[in-house]
Design a protein around this nucleic acid. Structure first.
Lengths: 125, 125
DNA sequence: GATCTGGTTCGATGACTGTCAAGATAGAGG
DNA sequence: CCTCTATCTTGACAGTCATCGAACCAGATC
């Protein structure tokens, strides 16, 4: 409940502005790969849209036709990508979505104006 | 040079608003999975940031330490995800980024208020 | 401590994916 | 038609991934 994989927040400017370096694309790809699975994407949306902005694993497991270990595995992937963070409270473990990473990723996709805390470390070539 | 896989444009509301259905997450995951590879992400950024908004394969191949077939494969994946579209002009094939899909995807990630240039097809579902 | 319940880790397995070499296809120019 | 260049397709192989059952850990409650 501690490992925070990629730290991509504020990593790069929008795709259309300038090409990504090999390193930037590797970091970003890790995040996209984590989101590149239907189950994980749905988990993400379930957590994000859950009351209070957080959900316990027990809320998530029932939604799918998958075993507990599998759900746990997907949550771990999301966690290591930095997309969610988990916290144990008593018997249950609660997960919440790390919004700032989503915002950063979104800012990379579109020629962001407002929202983007995008690029320091902008390598002005 | 015609297959346009996913048509996700205007498919769903932001993650934090309401959970994705199984079908929505499958469609979206296809797009994210396509972006979940460093090479493809870099290809995407190279095309997007190239002069004129398009790039021919010959411009892309030299950047990587990969064989032609491999680049071609990655371009196909991006194409089938709907992220790029290609057009043959004489001897060369030019690719360009389908911006509206990027905008849609970005709109799913953040609680779109101001942002959303996700023009037509607003799916108020 | 014993036990129950909620979650995670481990190990195995079948499916998918990135990569390349070799062959095929499409225009251009002889 | 033949050849040359740019690109794509095919087939094969190694590595990665999603999934499960079994075993394990953490609190709570007896």
């Amino acid at each position: 409940m501690s490992k925070q994989g990629a730290e991509v927040v504020g990593c790069c400017s929008p795709l259309a502005r300038q090409p990504l370096t090999a390193e930037q694309s590797s970091e970003l790809a890790r995040v996209f790969k984590a989101m590149g699975d239907p189950v994980r994407l749905r988990l993400l949306s379930l957590i994000a849209s859950h009351a209070g902005g957080e959900a316990c694993v027990c809320d998530l497991t029932d939604v799918f036709d998958l075993s507990g270990p599998t759900i746990s595995h997907h949550l771990k992937v999301l966690r290591e990508a930095g997309l969610i963070s988990g916290e144990r409270r008593g018997t249950w473990v609660y997960y919440l979505v790390r919004r700032e990473l989503l915002a950063t990723v979104a800012a990379v996709l579109v020629p962001g104006e407002d929202r983007a805390p995008a690029d320091h470390a902008g390598s002005p070539s």
